[in-house]
Amino acid sequence: MEVFHFKASKGMDRDLYEAVSELENICRDHDDVRLKLELDYKLAKADTPDENSDEKLDDFTCWDGHRLVGYLGIDDFGGRTVEVNGMVHPEYRRRGIFRELFRQAKMEWEGRDSNEMLLLTDRKSKEGKSFINGTGAAYDHTEYEMILSDGLFEEAKGFSKDLVLKEATNDDAREIARQNSIYFNEELADQELLDIDLEKKRGFHVYMAVVQGNIVGKVHLHLTNGEGGIFGLGIIPEWRGTGFGRELLLRSVHKLKELGASYIFLQVDAKNDTALGLYRSCGFKESYSMEYYKLNKER
Results as ranks from 00 to 15, higher is better:
Y41F: 08
F77N: 08
D75E: 06
S53G: 14
L16N: 01
N52V: 11
H30G: 05
D75S: 13
G65L: 15
D58K: 03
D40M: 01
K45R: 14
D58C: 06
Y71V: 00
R28F: 01
D32F: 09
G78R: 10
L37G: 10
T48R: 04
G70C: 07
P49C: 11
D13I: 15
D50L: 06
Y71I: 06
G73W: 15
H30E: 02
F77K: 13
R28T: 14
R67W: 05
N25K: 06
W63A: 10
S53T: 12
L37M: 12
G65T: 10
E18H: 10
E22W: 04
L16T: 07
C62W: 02
K10W: 08
L72Y: 08
P49I: 12
F60P: 05
R34V: 03
K45Y: 12
T48M: 13
C27T: 05
L23T: 01
D58A: 00
F77C: 10
Y41D: 15
D64I: 13
K36P: 14
K36I: 13
K10H: 08
L68I: 00
M12S: 01
I74G: 03
L57M: 15
E22Y: 11
E18Y: 12
D15G: 06
D40V: 01
E38I: 08
K42H: 08
G78S: 03
R28Y: 00
D31R: 10
Y41M: 11
Y71C: 05
L72M: 05
D40W: 07
C62D: 00
C27D: 11
E51N: 12
K42G: 08
C62T: 04
